[in-house]
Design a protein around this nucleic acid. Structure first.
Length: 809
DNA sequence: CCACCACGGGG
DNA sequence: GTGTACGTGGTGG
């Protein structure tokens, strides 16, 4: 197969198929596990590679004398070779040796002598002076190999495991059950036999034996890196059990530097043992579905939370028979009804497996491109984690010197445009947006990093955009649910991640090797220009603009227009734009409540209400308010204002009669202070007051409880009950407090939709009738077109995408 | 209104 | 590999 350099930049150049794991040691040994695509069998190749570094200068190696020689004279035992790369980059000497440790120590020795003090680590020399990749990446970059060539996601042998523990703190709590799901999808549990260290140690040994027997390529779970692995490592250490989970090398887990998105290591007692840790073993890849969930939600922003159960339910992965047990009660239930805990734990691993397949394909596909381990690509940020390795490999393949990180010249990074044209309720709403706006602008106007003199970034974006279209077409042609469709959808998702972060890479001044704030600003400037043109041209065609943000616009069309008319205006405007900037019809809705910039509710012509923005999707809102808001919005967007009034009255009266369960007003919180710490702090906080008021004098930091405001200003503690159990509900919440909250916090979000008079009438206290209550029969939701549209350049949500502030106004 | 603290995920 | 995250909500002064 003929490769162009550009193909090699994206996919590597070595066609070895089926690599499922790579492990390399600094001494130049590499182990490569491959699944033979035809038979599915596993082979291990032991190979040697020449460890390498990039240096800005050979000065620190001069002390080697004759042991330092040009690469052109060929490698020789105990010699360091060097090669000068061409072009202007600062990192211009490629130095190699048989053993990476000897190479590194030669550099460190020279640097220590030069600087007059001891240097222990190459990092201390700074990114300006040296580029030293982990051994696996040195191997992959140099060999042009990548993971998973010719493999489909479903050819991977994946296993899931999930610990059930007596609590969250491995210093005090124990593992009493482990659910596992094998590569054929069979879920099973392993359990302790008895109490004490010996029983738990025996469980861990059986777990290790099962993993070795099943011999998966990948181990998966939700929050694997934040909970299961650190917990397991801690218990194994305490109990003296060796975790021989790898396929080679010294048994035991190894740590790699904590990655972005690792468990947020919270200080305080009980959490130290669980602080940021990412474990790794030779031959298998640890994949955390929480990383995939975060990556997914970053673009869709539609998930209610990132917990396993919530995500599984939202994505339709949870079965109707799904067993639920509140976390704090799992161990206790195990004592009375162990079969229930087994079902629960098996459901957990089954959901984790489903989630891994549904959202994990992107990381799988990234591993076919970038020269890094699969597990590293699963939690990598796209800019430094994916694009930079691609650029490094491309430059080295071309024999070109690499630039290094440069601080910005002080130019601020300007952002996208955001315009709010109208607030309130609009009917017949259309959304149009530009597919991949920033990459399209980069391609259209050839905007790339100034120092990328080989043009690798734009070449990658060009190819990714084109090949993504091909992958989407292949996915569409394959049978729903088939491995081919899944693999191509995953490829498309991965390509989207890379393409969309190319702009973020440009703008991350000082953080990325080729960052170029001027280029990034040129992209956003063109973006604002395009968005303004789209708005102008739409308005000229008789629609009412509602909101425009970055790359998309919501507008309302006149009564009597049909979908064909809506599509026609979009394509008319699309035809006026530059060829690579494709404006698309993205959806149509019966009605929209425009509340504030980026905060709105959409009612599709059929289907469930869509809520966007913090005003409508507060994760911590009490259930009764959330429920009220959804029902009220549904009526409002149907134009039924008396219906909104009815729902309000009904909710207020239900609160006052205490017809709503306490659970619906309670908030779930975590206790982070011990009783001693709380009493010493002398600062009253509802959750702790609730504990004390209910007679609880002892609790552990980390315990989760549900609390609420009870009558008489007391703090109430809601006993953790299981689904269906209601007899313990005290129903002593402060109804007036929650009625006030209903009006001030939840009803307030409808303020833009009504005239002040109607708003007052709809949300008047049902038990204090006013002298003249206006009839709501003729009331209609209102839309207010702003004379001066609210416009700004918002900060991006993601610090990676746009790390700098508001800029020009 | 401001300062401060806690949340996210796992049992 | 990046970040004493980041954005937000609640509480007490």
């Amino acid at each position: 197969m003929a490769h162009t350099p550009e193909d090699e930049w994206l996919w590597g150049w070595d066609e070895t198929p089926g690599i499922v794991s790579v492990w390399a040691e600094p001494d130049g040994r590499a182990f490569v596990w491959r699944r033979i695509p035809q038979s599915g069998s596993l082979v291990r190749e032991d190979v040697r590679f020449r460890p390498w570094l990039l240096l800005a200068s050979l000065e620190d190696l001069a002390h080697l004398g004759a042991r330092l020689r040009p690469e052109s004279e060929g490698p020789a035992p105990h010699r360091v070779t060097w090669q000068e790369l061409e072009g202007p980059g600062a990192l211009r000497y490629l130095v190699r040796a048989e053993d990476g440790r000897a190479l590194a120590s030669a550099v460190l020795q020279g640097a220590s002598r030069r600087l007059g003090h001891s240097i222990g680590n190459l990092r201390e020399l700074g990114a300006q002076a040296v580029l030293a990749l982990p051994p696996e990446e040195q191997y992959l970059v140099a060999s042009g190999r990548t993971y998973f060539r010719d493999l489909r996601f479903d050819d991977l042998r994946r296993m899931q495991l999930d610990l059930e523990t007596t609590g969250l703190n491995p210093a005090h709590d124990r593992i009493f059950l482990v659910a596992i799901r094998d590569t054929d999808g069979r879920a099973d549990t392993l359990e302790v036999h008895g109490d004490g260290d010996a029983a738990e140690a025996d469980l861990l040994q059986r777990l290790v034996a099962r993993v070795r027997a099943i011999d998966p390529d990948v181990l998966e779970n939700h929050n694997l890196h934040g909970f299961d692995l650190p917990f397991l490592a801690h218990r194994a250490r305490v109990l003296g059990v060796t975790l021989a989970l790898g396929r080679a090398g010294i048994p035991g887990l190894r740590q790699r530097p904590a990655a972005r998105g690792a468990a947020p290591g919270r200080g305080g007692p009980g959490h130290d043992a669980m602080r940021r840790a990412r474990y790794t073993v030779p031959g298998r890849e640890f994949i955390d579905t929480l990383d995939a969930v975060r990556r997914h939600d970053f673009s869709t922003r539609e998930l209610p939370g990132h917990g396993l159960k919530a995500v599984a339910r939202h994505l339709g992965l949870a079965g109707p028979e799904r067993e639920h047990i509140p976390g704090a009660r799992v161990h206790e239930v195990f004592g009375t009804d162990p079969e229930r805990v087994r079902r629960y734990a098996r459901d957990d691993v089954t959901e984790a497996a489903g989630l891994a397949r549904m959202l994990g394909g992107a990381a799988f596909a990234l591993a076919r491109m970038a020269p890094r381990r699969y597990e590293r690509l699963a939690d990598a940020g796209p800019a430094t984690g994916v694009i930079d390795p691609l650029l490094v490999r491309a430059y080295l393949r071309a024999g070109a010197a690499l630039p290094t990180h440069e601080p910005g010249d002080g130019t601020p990074h300007s952002g996208a445009a955001l315009h709010l044209f109208a607030t309130g309720v609009a009917r017949h709403v259309v959304k149009a947006d530009v597919a991949s706006l920033y990459p399209s602008l980069m391609r259209q106007y050839r905007i790339g990093p100034r120092r990328d003199r080989l043009g690798v970034m734009l070449a990658l974006v060009d190819r990714l955009v084109e090949q993504r279209l091909a992958a989407k077409a292949r996915a569409k042609a394959a049978a729903p649910g088939s491995p081919e469709r899944h693999t191509n959808e995953a490829l498309s998702a991965a390509m989207k991640i890379v393409v969309n972060s190319a702009y973020g890479y440009l703008g991350a001044g000082g953080l990325t090797r080729f960052a170029d704030v001027h280029a990034a600003n040129e992209v956003t400037r063109r973006g604002r220009e395009v968005l303004a043109q789209i708005c102008q041209e739409l308005a000229r065609r008789g629609v009412t603009l509602l909101e425009a943000d970055t790359d998309g616009v919501y507008f309302s069309v006149p009564d009597g227009w049909g979908e064909a008319d809506e599509r026609r205006v979009v394509s008319e405007v699309a035809a006026l734009l530059p060829p690579k900037v494709r404006l698309e019809f993205d959806g149509r809705y019966a009605a929209m409540l425009s509340h504030e910039p980026k905060n709105y509710a959409l009612q599709p012509y059929d289907g469930a209400l869509i809520l966007r923005g913090v005003a409508f999707r507060s994760s911590r809102a009490e259930p009764f308010g959330e429920d009220f808001l959804r029902r009220a919005l549904r009526c409002l967007l149907a134009g039924d204002i008396p219906g909104v009034r009815d729902i309000y009255v009904e909710t207020v009266m239900a609160l006052r009669r205490r017809a709503l369960p306490t659970r619906s007003v309670a908030a779930q919180v975590r206790l982070t202070k011990t009783p001693e710490q709380y009493l010493a702090a002398r600062r009253r906080e509802l959750p702790y007051e609730a504990m004390l008021a209910s007679g609880r004098k002892h609790w552990a930091s980390g315990e989760q409880v549900r609390v609420y405001r009870a009558v008489g200003g007391r703090a109430g503690l809601l006993p953790e009950s299981e689904a269906g159990e209601n007899e313990s509900d005290p129903r002593d919440y402060d109804a007036d407090f929650y009625a006030r909250q209903l009006r001030e916090t939840f009803a307030a979000r409808l303020v833009r939709a009504l005239t002040p008079e109607d708003f007052a009438a709809v949300f008047a206290d049902p038990e204090q009738p006013s002298l003249f209550a206006p009839s709501l029969a003729d009331a209609r939701p209102v839309l207010t077109v702003l004379d001066e549209p609210e416009s700004e350049q918002p900060r991006s949500e993601n610090p990676w995408m746009s790390p700098l502030p508001l800029g020009e106004g």
